[in-house]
Simulated scan of single mutants.
Amino acid sequence: MRNPPSKSAGAVRIVAGRLRGSRLAVPEREGLRPTPDRVRETLFNWLMPYLPGMRCLDLYAGTGALGIEALSRGADACTFVERDRELARALADNLARLRVPGAEVANADAAGWLAGPARPFDLVFLDPPFDANLWQGAAALLESRGWLADGGFAYVESPREARLELPPAWAPHREGFAGAVRYALYRRSGAVPLS
């Protein structure tokens, strides 16, 4: 992907798992950039040994492709947080149409939602709109309020050149690049060292 598109419309395909090949309807929205198939495939290959039974949080859900891919591949539950009412409704419609168990959609602003009572998640997807510069504030709230479990993973998608200051407890695990996008997986301290 050279530059994130300014608008998105059409469909996103689920890459693997029990929902493999399913398509998610995507409303046209300025700045919406669904994570490409190739990036999702790489990410979930990294997560494959850990994914079964995980509780996930798709914080800036958009299409919900990341969280739905996790559920398709064996995660137990995913909470999707999306402030845009139309996107949240489209996501809920896609989940109902695909009969996805363990999914919850919150039509809310991410920062306000994170201010509520925390429950730890095993995997958090942090992929906010690139032009809003929300990574550090959201990561700080996730860490300080206890949203990410010990040993849990945080997936961060950002512009290739962005220099993010993430919590010190988030140890880099893997990273990759797709055009102008950097995608990285972190693991919160308290985990068994990885080989």
Results as ranks from 00 to 15, higher is better:
residue 23 R to F: 06
residue 142 L to W: 00
residue 168 P to N: 06
residue 160 R to A: 14
residue 28 E to N: 15
residue 22 S to Q: 15
residue 138 A to R: 01
residue 12 V to H: 08
residue 40 R to Y: 08
residue 65 A to W: 06
residue 23 R to W: 13
residue 76 D to R: 15
residue 157 E to V: 09
residue 60 Y to I: 01
residue 167 P to G: 06
residue 165 E to D: 15
residue 96 A to K: 14
residue 6 S to L: 15
residue 16 A to F: 08
residue 62 G to E: 03
residue 40 R to F: 10
residue 69 E to Y: 11
residue 69 E to S: 07
residue 37 D to P: 07
residue 124 V to P: 06
residue 181 V to E: 10
residue 82 E to I: 00
residue 72 S to T: 04
residue 165 E to R: 15
residue 194 L to P: 12
residue 193 P to S: 03
residue 194 L to Q: 13
residue 20 R to F: 05
residue 7 K to N: 14
residue 130 F to Y: 14
residue 63 T to S: 12
residue 85 R to S: 11
residue 164 L to G: 12
residue 3 N to P: 13
residue 36 P to H: 04
residue 186 Y to A: 06
residue 62 G to I: 06
residue 81 V to D: 01
residue 4 P to D: 07
residue 83 R to T: 09
residue 122 D to R: 10
residue 82 E to V: 05
residue 31 G to I: 01
residue 130 F to K: 05
residue 175 E to Y: 09
residue 43 L to H: 00
residue 181 V to K: 04
residue 113 W to E: 00
residue 104 E to T: 14
residue 76 D to T: 13
residue 108 A to N: 05
residue 103 A to W: 02
residue 167 P to A: 07
residue 108 A to F: 09
residue 77 A to V: 09
residue 35 T to W: 08
residue 24 L to H: 07
residue 182 R to I: 13
residue 176 G to A: 10
residue 118 A to G: 06
residue 170 W to F: 03
residue 175 E to N: 10
residue 168 P to H: 10
residue 188 R to Y: 11
residue 130 F to M: 00
residue 120 P to I: 08
residue 132 A to E: 14
residue 51 L to P: 11
residue 123 L to C: 04
residue 142 L to T: 05
residue 187 R to I: 07
residue 57 L to T: 06
residue 109 D to S: 06
residue 172 P to D: 09
residue 149 A to I: 03
residue 107 N to Y: 04
residue 25 A to V: 08
residue 164 L to H: 07
residue 87 L to K: 01
residue 1 M to C: 12
residue 70 A to R: 08
residue 156 V to G: 03
residue 80 F to C: 02
residue 42 T to M: 06
residue 77 A to K: 05
residue 111 A to W: 11
residue 16 A to W: 09
residue 125 F to E: 01
residue 192 V to I: 13
residue 185 L to K: 13
residue 45 N to L: 06
residue 56 C to I: 02
residue 25 A to I: 11
residue 174 R to K: 12
residue 108 A to S: 10
residue 16 A to S: 15
residue 149 A to Y: 04
residue 63 T to D: 11
residue 146 G to R: 04
residue 74 G to V: 05
residue 95 L to M: 00
residue 96 A to F: 14
residue 18 R to M: 08
residue 195 S to Q: 13
residue 191 A to Q: 13
residue 19 L to C: 07
residue 175 E to S: 12
residue 66 L to K: 03
residue 87 L to E: 03
residue 38 R to I: 01
residue 11 A to E: 15
residue 194 L to S: 11
residue 4 P to Q: 05
residue 165 E to H: 15
residue 97 R to W: 13
residue 144 S to G: 13
residue 30 E to V: 12
residue 163 R to L: 14
residue 137 G to Y: 02
residue 185 L to E: 10
residue 96 A to P: 10
